[in-house]
Design a protein around this nucleic acid. Structure first.
Lengths: 217, 217
DNA sequence: TTAGAATTGACAAAAAAATAACAAAATGTT
DNA sequence: AACATTTTGTTATTTTTTTGTCAATTCTAA
């Protein structure tokens, strides 16, 4: 019932956790109290074996002959993902994507507070997006000196992102959520998660064309 | 020099292609004419072996003792990704994310034309975003009857997405780029590419916390 | 209370992916 | 022109990931 000690967990497993979390959240909404790995596997379209093995990386949350208690499992995965802890985030780049992210209420629910938005455009500075103030990028240093920031969300053009990322790193921010198409070249003491939308779209295009061509034959 | 016949290419390889494409584009901008798998591997932070093996899934684009011709390789990967072909896309959901995507010029450069935006909110209908008209969701059927649509980009709330996805599927659209946090339950004749932003952010949070805790010890 | 059914956790096997190794071919150098 | 160097394409090996199996445990129902 307690957590396994220090067996390095693969990133593939980690990336599945939010999905489990979503499905469990849905089960709670449906007022389902218990679930077997078999039934969950059918809902999620993966194997029961994988679910059991994934969950066992973190400890035995289930019970033989019974399955998993939905609410308990939800809480446990939430703890693993750190939903109970809060992160302080800033958005750099008040363009369309920055705007969209600033307006996402979901992030706050998941423990991510957006405490400021930064941009180089003086016309944007001083405005407010979803109750969050827009500051000039030059005020980033003094802002970070006053208020701790865990994560910088970068929605700046690809041409600027390396410069901004260096600045952010120099200020001691340890996490970057990068929306620019450019890969960041940074040291190993900073965690970067990329969201390359164009890449994703191109993969969709490839798969779609493959499917369409395949059905012609 | 010609393409390998019908050896099924894994999705892991496909997902790396856009990244190769980006790096080659950068090399062209730097006016670099040739590159070895070794040098590219150093730039990209992966192994040379992987690059050679990935590229060989599609054919021998390199030359022993020389390496790869940057421009040629760029063109070949472009062809594989179908950059030369065009896709007709619509955005469903004219909220913040829909707006942001409608304003991305990059998609058009990559062969993805956004030909219409749809929303249920009558206040949005009739407006124009980045020269693209916003229509009422009820006009989707007649729109699709007049104009072929390959891909639907879904930026609607999670609560609506299944309903919208069914409608889209019924109209014969074969590709979905899904931005809602909900997984879509659809038949196998439709290709779905998910962009689960919350999932990505939670993974960043996990990795960041792991790093911070790890350095404490 | 007992027997049968269900289901996990752990381990084994299989499959997939990544990396390494190397012969073959082209380049560059003297 | 000869030879050392570079570098690919391909095959072999290793590692990682996924899937399958089953004893042990708990539940359920008579």
């Amino acid at each position: 019932m307690r957590k396994k000690e220090e067996k390095k967990i693969s990133i593939a497993v980690i990336r599945r956790l939010p999905r489990y979390f979503r499905y469990l959240s849905d089960l709670i909404k449906l007022d389902i109290k218990r679930i077997s790995s078999k039934e969950l596997s059918q809902r999620m379209g993966i194997t029961a074996s994988q679910i059991r093995q994934d969950l066992n990386c973190f400890g035995g949350f289930g019970q033989q002959g019974y399955g998993y208690n939905v609410e308990l499992l939800y809480d446990e995965i939430g703890k693993i993902l750190g939903i109970d802890k809060r992160f302080s985030c800033i958005i750099i780049g008040a363009g369309n994507m920055g705007n969209a992210l600033a307006n996402y209420q979901n992030f706050r629910n998941r423990g991510y507070d957006i405490v400021g938005i930064f941009d180089a455009d003086p016309r944007k500075v001083g405005t407010v997006i979803n109750d969050i103030k827009v500051y000039h990028i030059d005020d980033l240093e003094s802002f970070v000196a006053k208020q701790h920031v865990d994560i910088a969300i970068l929605t700046v053009p690809g041409s600027r992102v390396n410069e901004v990322a260096s600045k952010v790193t120099a200020l001691g921010i340890k996490g970057i959520w990068n929306f620019s198409p450019t890969d960041l070249k940074l040291g190993s003491d900073i965690v970067v998660e990329n969201v390359h939308l164009s890449d994703s779209l191109m993969v969709l295009g490839y798969r779609l064309r493959e499917k369409l061509n395949g059905s012609e034959q």
